[in-house]
Amino acid sequence: MEAILIAGIARRLLDELLRNPYRTVELRSARNVLAVEKAMEDLKKLFLTYEPFEDVRSGTEGLITELIEARELNMRVPWEESDEREVTVCRARIKLLGLGRVVKIERRDSIVVVKVREMLPQEMQIG
Results as ranks from 00 to 15, higher is better:
Leu67Thr: 03
Lys95Tyr: 11
Glu26Ala: 04
Leu34Lys: 12
Glu81His: 14
Ser29Gln: 07
Val102Leu: 06
Leu97Arg: 13
Leu73Gly: 02
Ala39Cys: 01
Val103Ile: 12
Val103Lys: 14
Thr49Asp: 01
Leu48Pro: 02
Val87Ala: 12
Glu80Pro: 06
Val33Lys: 00
Arg19Tyr: 12
Val36Gly: 02
Val77Asn: 09
Glu66Phe: 09
Glu84Arg: 15
Glu61His: 12
Ser82Val: 07
Gly62Ser: 13
Arg71Ile: 08
Leu17Val: 09
Arg93Pro: 05
Gly98Ala: 13
Leu67Pro: 01
Asn32Tyr: 00
Val102Ala: 02
Asn20Val: 14
Glu26Tyr: 08
Ala35Gln: 00
Glu54Ile: 08
Leu18His: 08
Pro52Tyr: 07
Phe47His: 04
Leu27Gln: 03
Arg23Glu: 15
Thr65Ser: 12
Ile94Gln: 00
Thr49Arg: 03
Glu54Asn: 03
Asn32Gln: 01
Ala39Glu: 02
Glu72Met: 12
Glu81Cys: 08
Val103Thr: 05
Ala35Arg: 00
Leu73Lys: 11
Leu46Arg: 01
Glu86Tyr: 15
Glu80Leu: 14
Leu67Asp: 05
Glu69Cys: 11
Glu37Pro: 00
Val103Met: 14
Glu16Ser: 10
Lys38Asp: 04
Arg101Gly: 11
Glu26Pro: 02
Glu41Phe: 07
Ser29Asn: 02
Leu97Ala: 05
Ala70Pro: 06
Glu80Gly: 04
Ser29Lys: 13
Glu26Cys: 02
Arg19Gly: 12
Arg85Val: 10
Leu63Cys: 09
Glu72Ser: 10
Arg85Ala: 15
Ala39Leu: 01
Glu69Ile: 05
Ala70Leu: 11
Asp83Met: 13
Leu97Pro: 03
Glu84Ile: 14
Glu66Tyr: 06
Leu46Trp: 01
Ile105Glu: 07
Lys104Ile: 09
Arg28Thr: 09
Lys104Phe: 13
Lys38Thr: 12
Asn32Leu: 00
Leu43Tyr: 10
Val25His: 03
Pro52Val: 10
Ile64Ser: 10
Leu13Gln: 12
Ala30Ile: 08
Phe47Asn: 04
Leu17Asp: 10
Glu86Gln: 11
Lys38Gln: 11
Ala70Val: 05
Ser82Arg: 15
Cys90Pro: 00
